[in-house]
Design a protein around this nucleic acid. Structure first.
Lengths: 350, 350
DNA sequence: TTTAAAAAATGAACCGGTTCAAAATTCTCG
DNA sequence: CGAGAATTTTGAACCGGTTCATTTTTTAAA
């Protein structure tokens, strides 16, 4: 009943089927779809009727093959599990959708081999371009020098130098912001829970922390306790807290990301300390949970929204005009969000 | 230096370019790529050399056009922000990647209009199939009756009846599990924070709660306090807690998801109550955070991994053999994970 | 050395759209 | 009514691969 038995073709209807049914040429069908104003209203009606009758859906692949630019954008992140990249994926999906594109989501899991495999497959798909949160962190040799089929790429959360477009956040400045805030509150023994050595973002944040200490005329050797962790999850933070409490307890802790901070929080609570009375706590990223944590967490906010939006826009622009494109590196400033984990006077909401 | 100036063609090299350079026919190039054993080693070497020289990457779109099945799978979720769907997206991405496919990630934002737009665009992309967490919750009329171009679809987290493939979790059983646990611990005034009325999953969980109360020979009117919220976020849970504390305080709270539970936790703490001593707390979903919450949260675990894995496999299977496919509905059992928010004797880790 | 069989290579046609020069139709106006 | 202009419609060629019946080359057997 729902499907008229005239539709016996197994493969979905093509433009030629429509043309035959509407008794016009394929060119006219194409025009009806793409330039409706150039076809006579009577003809147009007939074609539209045929399209509806056959349930015809134009094949986007064939379209791209004839020169139309693809509306697919690849997104390769190095860790989907991390709330930061999840939130980034979210805003990117939205921006991209609003400009009429779709996202192909890929997870490199921090593995450079997998990453290049994904880039090859995206090139084969002839996507319009790729947003890449790089797994490779080698600063010296440029690992993205020759991409398969000169795929337009915008690096996110990583500045890959003048050879690439990129949008990143100034991590050194972020580390500085956090420590300046703690110093201003009068803390003098500050721990930095820095994440795994080797992750550039985290190293930069720790670097900013040292700079702030020095700028305040203090000695990092004395006032700064640096701890590195093997991972960047809650459990890693908890272990770091236990480690810290073995020695002289710090009066403030700055963590390389919010998950670590949540773990540190638990470690402190379990040891009978309270936040912020005994120890002040600062995180990084300002993920959604930070605001709603039991003690709302002071955190260095990365402008994820802007990062995602700008990255998507830059990529679309970059992939639009093939020639005369000069690579652009945008660096966004981080922002400190003060909450009760450092300052009890902070408003309950924000 | 890196690019020989012989490569002056602007558009990426095609198979005919390779054929010309290697002095063979296009058919031979195609064979070298797809059936290397049918071409003479000497010829193969020449072709491979040409491919490398030109940086040739076969166009997947053209391949699909000639009949190869697409390796792209659409994933439409109704709320990327929710940790539950994020985790689902994560495991789906992995499963799909391991079977040689890619995910196109789309967010319907719970909007049925947007959802059908996305389905149309995925149909136009000629994706292999779609995993759909439906925005439409109308049980009576089947909103996915006629999909554009008979796209293979597997519904996730929603049983759409015999007309569709689906993988879902038994939410009624989940609600029962939670309440049975609380009853066993001796609680007699149990609140249910049920999320927005109208979300099927949440309604089912509340239904299960009632069933458990009745099965225990108690009166839902007396022992069950049902509260609905406008959203399903932390803030909504907090407001619900405030509401609950206005009347006779319950001695246990069961929440429709973990985020609500986190909010309720904060509301209770802010009111000077402690968990689980004063009030026991049970969440739903068992997202990653539940285990690591300040007081680890007892939660009804949805087997997200299995949900995602099975859904992906079912879809690939479904989209493989066009004919003789009978729709299958799989319903997975939820599982109660007991932690300290209801039982202090629970192990610290799990 | 011939010949038959096996292996390798060929290239035109096709997938499903778009394009555009050329042909057909309709409209305008003297 | 007819010429010229404007509007519509046409359909073959093309995008970049794959396919497969056919031709060419190589190998094995007689």
């Amino acid at each position: 009943m729902s499907t008229p038995d005239t539709a016996t073709s197994k493969s979905p209807a093509g433009i030629r089927d429509v043309a035959a049914l509407a008794q016009v040429s394929t060119g006219t069908v194409s025009n009806t779809i793409n330039r409706p104003d150039t076809v006579h209203p009577r003809t147009r009606a007939a074609v539209e009727k045929a399209i509806a009758e056959l349930g015809f859906v134009p094949n986007q692949q064939a379209r791209v093959l004839t020169g139309a630019s693809s509306n697919v954008i690849g997104l390769v992140v190095l860790d989907i599990e991390s709330p930061f990249y999840m939130e980034a994926a979210h805003v990117i999906e939205r921006t991209v959708r609003e400009s009429g594109h779709v996202v192909m989501l890929c997870n490199s899991e921090g593995d450079t081999t997998r990453e290049s495999g994904l880039l090859a497959m995206l090139a084969a798909q002839r996507v319009r371009g790729v947003l890449l949160a790089p797994a490779s962190l080698d600063e010296d040799s440029d690992p993205y020098k020759d991409l398969p089929g000169d795929l337009p790429v915008v690096l996110i959360d990583y500045n890959g130098g003048p050879e690439h477009c990129s949008i990143s956040v100034d991590n050194v400045a972020g580390g500085r912001l956090a420590i300046e805030h703690l110093l201003q509150l009068g803390h003098t023994r500050i721990a930095v829970v820095g994440g795994p050595t080797g992750l550039r973002q985290f190293a930069d944040r720790a670097q900013g922390a040292r700079e702030a200490i020095i700028a305040a005329g203090m000695d990092p050797e004395v006032s700064l306790i640096e701890v590195s962790t093997s991972g960047i999850g809650i459990q890693d933070g908890r272990r770091a807290a236990e480690l810290l409490l073995e020695g002289d307890s710090p009066d403030a802790v700055f963590c390389g990301n919010d998950m670590l901070a949540f773990g540190v929080y638990r470690g402190l609570i379990d040891a009978g300390l309270s936040v912020p009375e005994d120890v002040a706590l600062v995180g990084y990223d300002d993920i959604d949970f930070a605001r709603d944590w039991v003690v709302p967490l002071t955190s260095v906010r990365q402008p994820i929204d802007e990062l995602g939006t700008r990255a998507a826009r830059l990529l679309i622009e970059h992939s639009a005009r093939e020639d005369s494109h000069t690579h652009r590196q945008e660096v966004l400033p981080p922002e400190l969000v003060v909450r009760r984990s450092t300052d009890l006077r902070a408003p309950a909401q924000h």
